[in-house]
Each structure stands twice: as structure tokens, then as C-alpha cells.
């Protein structure tokens, strides 16, 4: 418990991540105006994925937590991924 308190990042990291999130949001908004055809969803999901990695790791401290929480998170993520892929079997072949 003590050493995970020690490893918490300082304010500078939080501010840097916040700025990065703002930057990604503006990229999302900009990209929405460009017609990318079939890649629109892929790009939007890609940016959203990067943003959530930042939020989960830094703001939600998962990076500094015990391994078990990472395992839980990866399992949930794997489930979500399976759901996405299975839904795509409908969307792509419809």
C-alpha cells in the first residue's frame, strides 16, 4: 500500500495529460469535418482509445495499482473487443 502512494505522479503530469486530452478532442472535432469514408469510425475509435488509455492509466491510477486490477481491466477490455468484432460481422456483411 505505501509504495503505491509514493509512485503517484505530480501535478505536472496531470496537466500534461489534460492538455493532451484537449488536443485529441480538437483532433476528433476537426476530423469529423473531413470525409474519410469507411475509415471515419476507425479513426474516431482510435483517438477515443488513446484518450481512454491516458485517463485510465494516469487519472484513474491504474498504472500504479496492483496487478490484479490490470488483469480485471484487460479482461473487461477483451470482452468489449469481442463485442465490437461480433457486431462488425453484422455491420460489414449486411
Amino acid at each position: 500500500m505505501e509504495n503505491h502512494v509514493k509512485k503517484h505522479p505530480g501535478y505536472s503530469t496531470y496537466i500534461f495529460v489534460w492538455l493532451a486530452l484537449l488536443a485529441f478532442t480538437s483532433i476528433t472535432v476537426t476530423v469529423a469535418g473531413i470525409d474519410l469514408g469507411n475509415y471515419t469510425m476507425l479513426v474516431a475509435l482510435g483517438i477515443a482509445a488513446i484518450k481512454s488509455v491516458l485517463v485510465i492509466n494516469i487519472f484513474m491510477h491504474i498504472k500504479y495499482e496492483e496487478k490484479i486490477f490490470k488483469v480485471f481491466l484487460l479482461l473487461s477490455l477483451f470482452t468489449l473487443l469481442s463485442i465490437f468484432i461480433l457486431t462488425l460481422f453484422d455491420i460489414i456483411y449486411r
Partner: peptide
Amino acid sequence: AFVGYLVWAHHMFTSGMSDTARWIF
């Protein structure tokens, strides 16, 4: 619990979703 996540669209065989999805589910 896990496999239960992967079968939901068997409620939707007549909904008009793709044939590929129908046989996979």
C-alpha cells in the same frame, strides 16, 4: 459468464442483420 457475452444476437435472427452474423451467432 464469458460465453454469455458472445451470443446476444440469437435474439435477432429475423431482424434483418447480415447472414454471416446469423450463422456465427
